[in-house]
Write a protein that binds this DNA or RNA. Structure first.
Length: 347
DNA sequence: TGCTGGCAAACA
DNA sequence: TGTTTG
DNA sequence: ACAGCA
Protein backbone atom coordinates (compact mmCIF):
# COMPACT_ATOMS: atom_id res chain seq x y z
CA UNK A 1 0.00 0.00 0.00
CA UNK A 2 1.05 3.59 -0.40
CA UNK A 3 3.27 2.99 -3.42
CA UNK A 4 2.70 5.25 -6.42
CA UNK A 5 1.41 2.40 -8.59
CA UNK A 6 -1.09 1.29 -5.92
CA UNK A 7 -2.27 4.87 -5.59
CA UNK A 8 -2.82 5.17 -9.34
CA UNK A 9 -4.69 1.84 -9.34
CA UNK A 10 -7.05 3.22 -6.70
CA UNK A 11 -7.80 6.24 -8.86
CA UNK A 12 -8.28 4.02 -11.91
CA UNK A 13 -10.72 1.82 -10.02
CA UNK A 14 -12.63 4.83 -8.75
CA UNK A 15 -13.03 6.13 -12.31
CA UNK A 16 -14.19 2.68 -13.35
CA UNK A 17 -16.86 2.83 -10.64
CA UNK A 18 -18.16 6.15 -11.94
CA UNK A 19 -18.05 4.73 -15.47
CA UNK A 20 -15.44 7.12 -16.72
CA UNK A 21 -13.53 4.70 -18.87
CA UNK A 22 -11.01 7.16 -20.36
CA UNK A 23 -9.40 8.39 -17.14
CA UNK A 24 -9.65 4.83 -15.82
CA UNK A 25 -7.48 3.53 -18.66
CA UNK A 26 -5.12 6.47 -18.32
CA UNK A 27 -4.44 5.76 -14.63
CA UNK A 28 -4.27 2.01 -15.20
CA UNK A 29 -1.68 2.36 -17.91
CA UNK A 30 0.34 4.78 -15.77
CA UNK A 31 0.28 2.28 -12.88
CA UNK A 32 1.33 -0.47 -15.24
CA UNK A 33 4.28 1.56 -16.49
CA UNK A 34 5.51 2.03 -12.91
CA UNK A 35 5.14 -1.69 -12.16
CA UNK A 36 7.19 -2.58 -15.22
CA UNK A 37 10.21 -0.56 -14.04
CA UNK A 38 13.30 -2.62 -13.14
CA UNK A 39 13.66 -0.73 -9.83
CA UNK A 40 11.19 1.28 -7.70
CA UNK A 41 11.11 5.04 -8.15
CA UNK A 42 13.53 6.85 -5.79
CA UNK A 43 12.19 10.36 -6.37
CA UNK A 44 10.00 12.39 -8.68
CA UNK A 45 12.81 12.94 -11.19
CA UNK A 46 12.84 9.23 -12.02
CA UNK A 47 9.64 9.55 -14.05
CA UNK A 48 11.44 11.76 -16.56
CA UNK A 49 10.98 10.32 -20.04
CA UNK A 50 8.50 7.59 -19.03
CA UNK A 51 5.43 7.22 -21.26
CA UNK A 52 1.82 7.57 -20.12
CA UNK A 53 2.71 9.74 -17.13
CA UNK A 54 1.17 13.16 -17.69
CA UNK A 55 0.62 16.16 -15.40
CA UNK A 56 -2.18 14.52 -13.44
CA UNK A 57 -0.37 11.31 -12.60
CA UNK A 58 2.83 13.22 -11.96
CA UNK A 59 1.09 15.37 -9.33
CA UNK A 60 -0.12 12.25 -7.54
CA UNK A 61 3.34 10.67 -7.52
CA UNK A 62 4.88 13.93 -6.36
CA UNK A 63 2.45 14.15 -3.43
CA UNK A 64 3.42 10.66 -2.36
CA UNK A 65 7.12 11.50 -2.36
CA UNK A 66 6.62 14.81 -0.56
CA UNK A 67 3.88 13.96 1.96
CA UNK A 68 3.93 10.18 2.06
CA UNK A 69 0.47 10.07 0.50
CA UNK A 70 -1.79 11.79 -1.99
CA UNK A 71 -4.78 13.65 -0.60
CA UNK A 72 -6.72 12.84 -3.74
CA UNK A 73 -6.14 9.12 -3.22
CA UNK A 74 -6.84 9.26 0.53
CA UNK A 75 -10.11 10.95 -0.24
CA UNK A 76 -11.13 8.11 -2.56
CA UNK A 77 -10.07 5.48 -0.03
CA UNK A 78 -12.33 6.92 2.67
CA UNK A 79 -15.21 7.51 0.28
CA UNK A 80 -18.19 5.40 1.28
CA UNK A 81 -19.26 4.82 -2.29
CA UNK A 82 -15.81 3.64 -3.36
CA UNK A 83 -15.43 1.35 -0.33
CA UNK A 84 -18.85 -0.19 -0.84
CA UNK A 85 -18.47 -0.75 -4.60
CA UNK A 86 -15.07 -2.30 -3.95
CA UNK A 87 -16.66 -4.85 -1.63
CA UNK A 88 -19.58 -5.59 -3.97
CA UNK A 89 -17.43 -6.03 -7.08
CA UNK A 90 -15.19 -8.44 -5.17
CA UNK A 91 -17.98 -11.00 -5.64
CA UNK A 92 -17.61 -13.23 -8.72
CA UNK A 93 -20.32 -12.16 -11.20
CA UNK A 94 -20.79 -8.66 -9.78
CA UNK A 95 -19.50 -5.75 -11.89
CA UNK A 96 -19.74 -1.97 -11.53
CA UNK A 97 -23.35 -1.77 -12.81
CA UNK A 98 -24.76 -4.27 -10.35
CA UNK A 99 -22.69 -2.87 -7.49
CA UNK A 100 -23.96 0.60 -8.31
CA UNK A 101 -27.55 -0.63 -8.37
CA UNK A 102 -27.22 -2.15 -4.90
CA UNK A 103 -25.50 0.97 -3.58
CA UNK A 104 -28.33 3.18 -4.83
CA UNK A 105 -30.78 0.97 -2.98
CA UNK A 106 -28.94 1.89 0.20
CA UNK A 107 -27.24 -1.47 0.65
CA UNK A 108 -23.75 -1.30 2.17
CA UNK A 109 -22.57 -4.82 3.03
CA UNK A 110 -22.56 -8.33 1.61
CA UNK A 111 -24.65 -9.51 4.57
CA UNK A 112 -27.37 -7.05 3.58
CA UNK A 113 -27.28 -8.35 0.00
CA UNK A 114 -27.70 -12.02 0.84
CA UNK A 115 -30.47 -11.37 3.37
CA UNK A 116 -32.43 -9.13 0.99
CA UNK A 117 -35.16 -11.30 -0.54
CA UNK A 118 -36.00 -8.73 -3.21
CA UNK A 119 -32.60 -9.16 -4.84
CA UNK A 120 -32.41 -11.76 -7.55
CA UNK A 121 -28.94 -13.11 -8.12
CA UNK A 122 -27.99 -14.83 -11.36
CA UNK A 123 -26.27 -18.20 -11.59
CA UNK A 124 -22.79 -16.70 -11.53
CA UNK A 125 -23.49 -14.46 -8.54
CA UNK A 126 -25.06 -17.28 -6.56
CA UNK A 127 -21.82 -19.24 -6.97
CA UNK A 128 -19.88 -16.07 -6.20
CA UNK A 129 -21.58 -15.70 -2.82
CA UNK A 130 -21.66 -19.41 -2.07
CA UNK A 131 -17.90 -19.80 -2.41
CA UNK A 132 -16.94 -16.22 -1.59
CA UNK A 133 -14.52 -17.06 1.24
CA UNK A 134 -12.55 -19.58 -0.82
CA UNK A 135 -12.55 -17.69 -4.10
CA UNK A 136 -11.32 -14.44 -2.55
CA UNK A 137 -8.31 -16.20 -1.07
CA UNK A 138 -5.24 -16.35 -3.30
CA UNK A 139 -4.53 -19.63 -5.07
CA UNK A 140 -1.04 -20.98 -4.42
CA UNK A 141 1.17 -22.50 -7.07
CA UNK A 142 0.93 -25.88 -5.31
CA UNK A 143 -2.85 -25.65 -5.49
CA UNK A 144 -2.68 -24.70 -9.17
CA UNK A 145 -0.53 -27.74 -9.86
CA UNK A 146 -2.89 -29.99 -7.92
CA UNK A 147 -5.78 -28.77 -10.06
CA UNK A 148 -3.56 -29.41 -13.08
CA UNK A 149 -3.09 -33.06 -12.09
CA UNK A 150 -6.84 -33.59 -11.78
CA UNK A 151 -7.60 -32.00 -15.15
CA UNK A 152 -4.70 -33.76 -16.87
CA UNK A 153 -5.86 -37.13 -15.55
CA UNK A 154 -9.37 -36.62 -16.92
CA UNK A 155 -8.24 -35.11 -20.22
CA UNK A 156 -5.78 -37.98 -20.64
CA UNK A 157 -8.69 -40.44 -20.53
CA UNK A 158 -10.43 -38.54 -23.31
CA UNK A 159 -7.28 -38.57 -25.42
CA UNK A 160 -3.86 -39.89 -24.28
CA UNK A 161 -1.96 -37.44 -26.49
CA UNK A 162 -3.54 -34.34 -24.95
CA UNK A 163 -1.31 -31.29 -24.49
CA UNK A 164 -1.92 -29.13 -21.44
CA UNK A 165 -0.19 -25.93 -20.29
CA UNK A 166 -0.63 -23.87 -17.14
CA UNK A 167 -1.04 -20.28 -18.35
CA UNK A 168 -2.06 -16.94 -16.82
CA UNK A 169 -0.10 -15.46 -13.94
CA UNK A 170 1.54 -18.75 -12.97
CA UNK A 171 3.13 -19.03 -16.40
CA UNK A 172 4.60 -15.58 -15.79
CA UNK A 173 6.25 -16.93 -12.65
CA UNK A 174 3.81 -15.69 -10.01
CA UNK A 175 3.50 -17.67 -6.77
CA UNK A 176 -0.17 -16.81 -6.26
CA UNK A 177 -3.16 -16.06 -8.45
CA UNK A 178 -6.90 -15.45 -8.19
CA UNK A 179 -7.68 -18.34 -10.54
CA UNK A 180 -5.97 -21.10 -12.53
CA UNK A 181 -5.83 -21.05 -16.33
CA UNK A 182 -5.08 -24.03 -18.56
CA UNK A 183 -4.75 -24.40 -22.31
CA UNK A 184 -5.56 -27.86 -23.66
CA UNK A 185 -5.54 -29.41 -27.09
CA UNK A 186 -5.30 -32.70 -28.97
CA UNK A 187 -3.36 -33.27 -32.21
CA UNK A 188 -6.21 -34.50 -34.37
CA UNK A 189 -8.03 -31.54 -35.96
CA UNK A 190 -11.64 -31.29 -34.82
CA UNK A 191 -11.25 -33.71 -31.94
CA UNK A 192 -10.65 -30.81 -29.53
CA UNK A 193 -14.38 -30.02 -29.83
CA UNK A 194 -15.28 -32.86 -27.51
CA UNK A 195 -12.51 -32.23 -25.02
CA UNK A 196 -13.98 -29.67 -22.63
CA UNK A 197 -17.48 -31.20 -22.51
CA UNK A 198 -15.84 -34.51 -21.59
CA UNK A 199 -13.73 -32.89 -18.87
CA UNK A 200 -16.72 -31.03 -17.43
CA UNK A 201 -18.87 -34.18 -17.43
CA UNK A 202 -16.19 -36.15 -15.63
CA UNK A 203 -15.69 -33.42 -13.03
CA UNK A 204 -19.43 -33.47 -12.41
CA UNK A 205 -19.45 -37.27 -12.08
CA UNK A 206 -16.62 -37.09 -9.57
CA UNK A 207 -18.57 -34.48 -7.59
CA UNK A 208 -15.87 -31.85 -8.09
CA UNK A 209 -17.88 -29.43 -10.25
CA UNK A 210 -19.29 -26.53 -8.23
CA UNK A 211 -20.00 -24.15 -11.12
CA UNK A 212 -19.52 -24.21 -14.87
CA UNK A 213 -20.05 -21.79 -17.72
CA UNK A 214 -19.29 -23.46 -21.04
CA UNK A 215 -18.68 -21.40 -24.16
CA UNK A 216 -18.92 -23.03 -27.55
CA UNK A 217 -16.24 -22.34 -30.14
CA UNK A 218 -17.06 -19.78 -32.80
CA UNK A 219 -13.65 -19.90 -34.41
CA UNK A 220 -13.66 -19.60 -38.20
CA UNK A 221 -10.26 -19.31 -39.86
CA UNK A 222 -11.69 -18.49 -43.29
CA UNK A 223 -13.24 -15.27 -41.98
CA UNK A 224 -10.20 -13.99 -40.10
CA UNK A 225 -8.70 -11.34 -42.43
CA UNK A 226 -11.99 -9.61 -43.20
CA UNK A 227 -13.23 -8.77 -39.78
CA UNK A 228 -11.30 -6.48 -37.54
CA UNK A 229 -8.97 -8.43 -35.29
CA UNK A 230 -10.55 -9.21 -32.03
CA UNK A 231 -9.46 -8.97 -28.46
CA UNK A 232 -11.28 -11.98 -27.09
CA UNK A 233 -10.76 -15.28 -28.86
CA UNK A 234 -13.42 -17.57 -30.24
CA UNK A 235 -12.00 -20.82 -28.96
CA UNK A 236 -14.03 -23.25 -26.98
CA UNK A 237 -13.59 -22.44 -23.31
CA UNK A 238 -15.15 -22.81 -19.89
CA UNK A 239 -15.11 -20.92 -16.62
CA UNK A 240 -15.38 -23.27 -13.68
CA UNK A 241 -15.35 -23.47 -9.92
CA UNK A 242 -14.00 -26.83 -8.80
CA UNK A 243 -13.63 -28.58 -5.49
CA UNK A 244 -9.97 -29.12 -4.63
CA UNK A 245 -9.33 -31.64 -1.86
CA UNK A 246 -6.58 -30.52 0.51
CA UNK A 247 -4.97 -33.95 0.51
CA UNK A 248 -4.30 -33.53 -3.23
CA UNK A 249 -2.16 -30.47 -2.65
CA UNK A 250 1.54 -31.18 -2.23
CA UNK A 251 2.91 -30.00 1.11
CA UNK A 252 -0.44 -29.70 2.82
CA UNK A 253 -1.32 -32.01 5.68
CA UNK A 254 -4.45 -34.09 5.13
CA UNK A 255 -5.28 -33.95 8.83
CA UNK A 256 -8.12 -31.46 9.15
CA UNK A 257 -10.08 -32.75 12.13
CA UNK A 258 -12.57 -29.95 12.01
CA UNK A 259 -14.07 -28.12 9.05
CA UNK A 260 -14.02 -28.91 5.36
CA UNK A 261 -11.24 -30.88 3.72
CA UNK A 262 -11.54 -28.99 0.42
CA UNK A 263 -11.33 -25.55 -1.13
CA UNK A 264 -13.28 -24.00 -4.03
CA UNK A 265 -10.99 -22.78 -6.84
CA UNK A 266 -11.72 -20.76 -9.97
CA UNK A 267 -10.48 -22.59 -13.06
CA UNK A 268 -10.51 -21.53 -16.72
CA UNK A 269 -9.98 -24.05 -19.52
CA UNK A 270 -9.39 -23.12 -23.17
CA UNK A 271 -9.27 -25.63 -26.02
CA UNK A 272 -7.98 -24.23 -29.33
CA UNK A 273 -7.26 -26.42 -32.37
CA UNK A 274 -3.66 -27.67 -32.16
CA UNK A 275 -2.71 -25.53 -35.14
CA UNK A 276 -3.66 -22.34 -33.22
CA UNK A 277 -2.02 -23.40 -29.95
CA UNK A 278 0.96 -21.01 -30.08
CA UNK A 279 -1.20 -17.91 -30.54
CA UNK A 280 -3.65 -19.00 -27.89
CA UNK A 281 -0.75 -19.60 -25.49
CA UNK A 282 0.68 -16.13 -26.12
CA UNK A 283 -2.75 -14.59 -25.68
CA UNK A 284 -3.55 -16.43 -22.47
CA UNK A 285 -0.21 -15.78 -20.80
CA UNK A 286 -1.23 -12.20 -19.92
CA UNK A 287 -1.13 -9.88 -18.23
CA UNK A 288 -4.13 -7.90 -19.44
CA UNK A 289 -2.03 -4.81 -19.79
CA UNK A 290 0.77 -6.70 -21.54
CA UNK A 291 -1.64 -8.15 -24.11
CA UNK A 292 -2.98 -4.67 -24.81
CA UNK A 293 0.52 -3.34 -25.27
CA UNK A 294 1.60 -6.28 -27.43
CA UNK A 295 -1.33 -5.69 -29.78
CA UNK A 296 -0.66 -1.99 -29.86
CA UNK A 297 3.02 -2.67 -30.63
CA UNK A 298 2.12 -5.09 -33.45
CA UNK A 299 -0.27 -2.58 -34.96
CA UNK A 300 1.64 0.66 -34.65
CA UNK A 301 5.30 -0.37 -34.80
CA UNK A 302 5.09 -3.47 -37.00
CA UNK A 303 2.00 -2.83 -39.13
CA UNK A 304 0.67 -6.21 -38.04
CA UNK A 305 -2.51 -7.39 -36.38
CA UNK A 306 -2.14 -9.72 -33.43
CA UNK A 307 -4.87 -11.53 -31.57
CA UNK A 308 -5.30 -14.86 -29.81
CA UNK A 309 -5.72 -16.69 -33.14
CA UNK A 310 -3.11 -15.34 -35.51
CA UNK A 311 -0.59 -12.71 -36.54
CA UNK A 312 -1.47 -10.92 -39.76
CA UNK A 313 1.06 -8.84 -41.72
CA UNK A 314 -0.80 -5.87 -43.23
CA UNK A 315 2.13 -5.00 -45.48
CA UNK A 316 2.22 -8.36 -47.28
CA UNK A 317 -1.37 -9.33 -46.46
CA UNK A 318 -0.27 -12.75 -45.21
CA UNK A 319 -0.67 -14.59 -41.99
CA UNK A 320 2.68 -15.27 -40.38
CA UNK A 321 1.89 -18.92 -39.79
CA UNK A 322 1.21 -19.35 -43.50
CA UNK A 323 4.49 -17.68 -44.27
CA UNK A 324 6.47 -20.01 -42.03
CA UNK A 325 5.54 -22.95 -44.21
CA UNK A 326 6.29 -21.11 -47.41
CA UNK A 327 9.23 -18.89 -46.55
CA UNK A 328 10.27 -19.71 -42.98
CA UNK A 329 11.57 -16.29 -41.99
CA UNK A 330 8.90 -13.86 -40.79
CA UNK A 331 7.30 -16.19 -38.24
CA UNK A 332 10.63 -16.77 -36.58
CA UNK A 333 11.07 -13.02 -36.38
CA UNK A 334 7.59 -12.43 -35.04
CA UNK A 335 8.03 -15.24 -32.60
CA UNK A 336 11.36 -14.02 -31.25
CA UNK A 337 9.92 -10.53 -30.86
CA UNK A 338 6.99 -11.91 -28.97
CA UNK A 339 9.20 -14.08 -26.78
CA UNK A 340 11.50 -11.17 -26.02
CA UNK A 341 8.54 -9.08 -24.96
CA UNK A 342 7.11 -11.95 -22.97
CA UNK A 343 10.41 -12.35 -21.14
CA UNK A 344 10.44 -8.64 -20.40
CA UNK A 345 6.89 -8.78 -19.05
CA UNK A 346 7.23 -8.59 -15.29
CA UNK A 347 3.59 -7.74 -14.67
C1' DT B 1 -8.91 19.82 -31.11
C1' DG B 2 -11.12 15.60 -31.06
C1' DC B 3 -10.81 10.74 -31.09
C1' DT B 4 -9.19 6.19 -29.07
C1' DG B 5 -8.47 3.36 -25.41
C1' DG B 6 -9.91 -5.01 -25.75
C1' DC B 7 -14.42 -7.61 -27.53
C1' DA B 8 -17.56 -12.17 -28.02
C1' DA B 9 -20.98 -14.91 -25.72
C1' DA B 10 -23.83 -16.62 -21.82
C1' DC B 11 -27.34 -15.44 -18.84
C1' DA B 12 -31.66 -13.17 -17.10
C1' DT C 1 -31.38 -6.08 -24.07
C1' DG C 2 -27.79 -5.01 -20.59
C1' DT C 3 -24.18 -6.93 -17.66
C1' DT C 4 -20.23 -9.77 -16.70
C1' DT C 5 -16.46 -12.70 -17.55
C1' DG C 6 -11.68 -13.70 -19.43
C1' DA D 1 -12.21 13.68 -15.40
C1' DC D 2 -6.04 10.83 -18.34
C1' DA D 3 -2.55 10.50 -22.03
C1' DG D 4 -1.06 9.93 -26.82
C1' DC D 5 -1.72 10.73 -31.46
C1' DA D 6 -3.49 12.46 -36.19
Amino acid sequence: MGTPSDALEVLAENYEFIESIGPCLGFRRAASVLKSLPAPLRNINDIEGLPCLGPETKAVIQDIFECGSSSKVEEVLTDERYRTLKIFTSVFGVGPKTAEKWYRRGLRSLEQIVSDSSIHLNKMQIAGFQYYEDISKPVSKAEAEAVGHIIKEIAGCFSPDVTMTLTGGFRRGKEFGHDVDFLLTVPRPGKEDGLLPAVIDQLRIQGLLLYSDFQESTFDLSRLPNRRFEAMDHFQKCFLIVKLKKEQVVGQQAEQRCGRDWKAVRVDLVAPPAERYAFALLGWSGSTQFERDLRRYSRLERNMLLDNHALFDKTTCFFCNKVIHQRRIPMARCDSTASAMLTANQD
